[in-house]
């Protein structure tokens, strides 16, 4: 893929998909026991996004991502010998995904983005310095290393560590409480 096209995809994922990942994980947690299985499935889902040639036609990135995750889960259940009836029947799209985006939901995604700023502030000191010098002040990794008086491999380590810490913090975010209570309501209705 050409570099600018790749950058557009990365930006789209950062702004339109990742803010919704917590919600999708919440949905998955109710269906998959092991956190490792959830991580695997989420990585696979992003891999599908990475293979996209075009994405500008996708009106609802959150729904789109959710559909990918759901399809992957369906495949996985099909492949496994024992089909958990309960799991299979509950794979329909929660109604929260059928709606058009509300201002609240858009604001939620925007808040999530703003939160990344706070996550950077919350990084361990050296990690945060690397992020700030490289990303805000625009120094190269080499210059960052010189400024901090460390080797370039330390800068690489710190940067990679920061990326992982931010990823982890984003997914540990609690699931939108409104969403959670609605899912509970829906399940309760179904059992009746």
């Amino acid at each position: 893929m050409r570099e600018d096209a790749r950058q557009r995809l990365v930006t789209w994922v950062a702004t339109s998909v990742m803010p919704h990942e917590g919600r999708v994980r919440g949905w998955l947690r109710q269906r998959l026991q092991s956190p490792e299985d959830i991580d695997d499935l989420i990585q696979e889902a992003y891999a599908r996004l990475a293979a996209l040639d075009r994405f500008d036609h996708i009106a609802r990135p959150d729904t789109f991502f959710f559909q990918i995750v759901r399809n992957l889960l369906v495949d996985q259940i099909r492949r496994s010998r024992v089909v958990r009836i309960e799991a299979a029947t509950e794979l329909d799209v929660p109604s929260v995904y059928d709606e058009t985006p509300t201002p609240e939901r858009i604001a939620g995604a925007r808040r999530e983005l703003a939160r990344v700023g706070e996550l950077i502030e919350g990084l361990p000191e050296r990690c945060r310095k690397v992020f700030t010098l490289r990303k805000v002040e625009g120094l190269s990794q080499k210059e960052v290393a010189e400024r901090l008086g460390v080797s370039e491999s330390v800068v690489e380590n710190e940067g990679a560590k920061g990326i992982r810490l931010i990823l982890r913090a984003m997914r540990e975010e609690t699931v939108d409480p409104e969403y959670r209570s609605r899912v509970r309501d829906e399940r309760a209705t179904k059992r009746q």
Partner: peptide
Amino acid sequence: LLQAEAVWSMT
């Protein structure tokens, strides 16, 4: 890779 790139660009 896409996730990590997104975080890096998001910052």
